[in-house]
Amino acid sequence: MKNRTAMFMTHTLLIVFGIIWIYPFIWMISSSFKTNSTFLTSGINPLPENIHWDNYIRAWEVANFSGYFLNSVIITLSTVLIVITLSCLTGYALGRVKFPGRKVIITVVVALMFIPSGYTIIPLYELMKMLGLSDSLLGVILAESSGAHILFILLFAAFFSRVPQEVEDSAAIDGAGFFRTFAKIVLPTAKPVIATAAIMQFIWTWSSFLVPLVLTLNSPELRTLAVGMLSFVGRYQTDWTGMAAGASISLVPVILIFIVMQRYFIEGISGSVK
């Protein structure tokens, strides 16, 4: 009996606290359907009188969230593709082949990771200027793909090192070379690791702020959602419901993707502390 009361109390607290926890999102979405005048007069009532899509249309067309959205999608998907390809290939080489110099490479990269870094965004910006990429999405994509992605490399290496040697041997007997064994036989089994790395990188890049902020300082048309939002509130200071709509455009897709793919994401996070 005592246990059931305790359990009931736990659930009550978790639910009440949980609603408060995600209330900012509820507030954001509900405000995005209000008009600016009802927004001010409706007080704390979260329910809009009726659904107004005007805010979304205004944000999408007038405030160029359509452009920001497209930029965010292109930058995020390209970065995910590049990062996954690089770390998957590296993980396969490190996890499956005991090539000469392997230990040295691991040691050097891990050691370099620990070098204290200064304000690296300035040299990154200068580098993109030198490469002639400072006013292009490609520059932002390359900057977002930088880094050594140690966590993903470790995930891939650990996974590939567990693939039984017989799989590789029988592929070799069938005449498959190194690359075909990797691409046709081993890689398809790595889907869960790819999903974990992809969803983590997706959320990180989608949320990235400083890199696109600095790299698009002179080219507003290349802004991502996060950066575009800042310029939106700078320009339309009193358009609160437009702000809520813009914020929803940016947050709702990533929240939905997370809810569908959360198993992989949480596994990745928990893998990073093990």
Binding site: W206, L225, L251, I255
Partner: peptide, 12 residues
């Protein structure tokens, strides 16, 4: 629910 804020964009 408690994890949800993590995936959202800090700047937003």
């Amino acid at each position: 629910v408690y994890f949800l804020p993590v995936v959202t964009t800090m700047a937003i």
